[in-house]
Amino acid sequence: MYIDLDTATDYKRSIFNAIVAPRPIGWISTMAADGRVNLAPFSHFNLVSTAPPVVMFSCNAPDDRHEKDTITNVRATGEFVTNLVTWDLREQMNNSSFNAPYGTDEFELAGLAKAPSNKVRPPRVAASPASMECKLLKIMDIEPIGPGDTFSNVVFGVVVALHLDDRFVEPNGRFDVVRTQPLTRLGGNQYASTGPIVELGRPNPPRA
């Protein structure tokens, strides 16, 4: 099958989510200027750089308003927190994705306890084994290019603090991915966690 995106009109746009998979989930907590809290998952999320530590997440504009509540809050305050979603937290994550009216506290909706952050105002998900406090670096607005496209926002944030559950930090300082079982997004409503784990050292050229 070949699809020419300049001319094709009948392909499912969700196919990209199945091709670029699995994807980590950014469980983003934010706070509005008036103190109301929001929590939402984003599967277009990833680490961009480690020095400085920068993460990104993006989303399309919703049908009922010009942008998602998370973006509105980040624009207003310049802060957010990413919380690692584990396999055990999959139901709570899914419940927090409910399209609730602006100002709804998704922590309460999903039955999640809050934990305070140190350098930003938004709270953390207390049950998450790893949270990153972030300051806004920039927001890139992607305008529609062709028919059927939607407006998108891409948020870049600098990580200014880490919260790690000591149970998952090894003596050498390595974070134990196998035991935390991070949840990943596949195509459609499919999710998964870590499968078989292998370690592959980077090959070095032979010495002359």
Score class of each variant (00 low, 15 high):
25 I>W: 12
65 R>C: 03
192 A>P: 14
68 K>A: 04
33 A>D: 03
191 Y>D: 15
108 E>Q: 00
133 E>I: 10
159 V>N: 02
166 D>A: 06
31 M>E: 14
78 G>F: 09
145 I>S: 12
79 E>S: 01
47 L>M: 02
29 S>K: 10
19 I>L: 07
153 N>H: 13
128 S>R: 00
77 T>R: 11
116 P>V: 13
65 R>H: 07
180 T>F: 01
117 S>Q: 14
181 Q>H: 04
34 D>K: 01
191 Y>G: 07
14 S>L: 03
45 F>R: 09
120 V>Y: 06
56 M>P: 11
4 D>E: 12
183 L>I: 08
57 F>A: 08
137 L>Y: 14
57 F>P: 13
168 F>I: 01
166 D>I: 02
40 A>S: 15
98 F>P: 07
14 S>D: 13
169 V>M: 13
78 G>P: 09
77 T>P: 00
190 Q>C: 05
174 R>Y: 15
127 A>L: 15
121 R>K: 15
19 I>V: 14
55 V>G: 04
151 F>S: 11
12 K>L: 05
120 V>M: 07
47 L>K: 06
188 G>D: 12
5 L>H: 05
32 A>I: 02
2 Y>L: 04
111 G>P: 02
46 N>H: 11
13 R>N: 04
12 K>A: 14
92 Q>H: 13
47 L>W: 10
161 A>I: 02
81 V>P: 04
123 P>L: 01
62 P>S: 02
117 S>I: 13
148 G>T: 00
94 N>L: 14
67 E>K: 04
124 R>N: 10
186 L>E: 08
138 K>M: 14
170 E>L: 14
208 A>W: 04
177 V>A: 04
142 I>W: 11
149 D>T: 03
104 T>H: 11
52 P>A: 05
95 N>C: 00
25 I>E: 09
150 T>V: 08
182 P>F: 01
19 I>E: 04
83 N>F: 02
185 R>Q: 12
195 G>F: 05
65 R>M: 14
161 A>V: 07
104 T>A: 09
25 I>H: 05
58 S>P: 14
68 K>Y: 08
59 C>W: 07
97 S>R: 03
135 K>I: 10
163 H>K: 00
30 T>R: 13
87 W>G: 04
174 R>G: 10
143 E>T: 03
53 P>F: 10
110 A>G: 12
122 P>S: 06
37 V>H: 13
30 T>F: 06
112 L>R: 08
54 V>T: 06
182 P>L: 05
149 D>S: 08
90 R>T: 06
99 N>G: 10
177 V>N: 00
160 V>C: 02
124 R>W: 12
126 A>M: 13
30 T>D: 01
12 K>S: 11
18 A>P: 07
46 N>D: 02
119 K>Y: 15
109 L>F: 12
45 F>C: 12
72 T>L: 04
1 M>A: 14
60 N>G: 02
160 V>D: 03
203 P>G: 09
90 R>N: 10
88 D>Y: 01
164 L>S: 15
54 V>W: 10
18 A>C: 07
156 F>T: 10
36 R>Q: 00
61 A>M: 14
160 V>E: 14
47 L>V: 15
146 G>K: 10
70 T>G: 03
174 R>T: 13
198 V>T: 12
192 A>R: 10
89 L>P: 07
118 N>A: 15
27 W>P: 00
92 Q>A: 12
169 V>I: 09
32 A>M: 08
93 M>Q: 01
172 N>I: 06
58 S>K: 04
36 R>E: 09
